[in-house]
Amino acid sequence: MQQERQRKNNYPMNTFMTMSLPSDIHYARIASKTAMMVAEFFSGQSGIAEKREEFCHAFELAVAEAFANSVFNAAPQEKERQVMISFSSEKSELMVSVSDANPEFDPEMQVPDILSYPEHGYGLVLIRQLMDSVRYSRQDGMNQLSMIKNAG
């Protein structure tokens, strides 16, 4: 009961894994595959079999998008920078946070009309649809995009 309450009050999630990757698009697949494996591991651990594939794919895709977003958002001369990815959980919710020190961006961006053949701008739309909850914060010069999905 107490934990239940705390969860509702603060969403303090228990971070169990963090990784830091170079801000280079070639690492995006490592990030997304890792996210998929973490989601697989997590949903297995919590004994949730139903819609497991969908759950894992959601993390795979959302992290791919967040990572690419972060890399493309970086100024070109700042290749040295890193993208931080951390995984946290509480009960049946899994959260992944992707952070970087790049310029601020608009997390509410909408995709332009599909019939005008837009080649960019689908990423955040996908993330918002795939996840139960998406939070963007800007603090101390860092962007953090936190994405939560319930495996239940």
Binding site: A28, L61, A64, E65, A68, E119, H120, Y122, G123
Partner: peptide
């Protein structure tokens, strides 16, 4: 696996 950049490529 297809992400939004892959989709953008097909749209292009």
């Amino acid at each position: 696996f297809l992400d939004s950049s892959g989709l953008g490529c097909l749209v292009g």
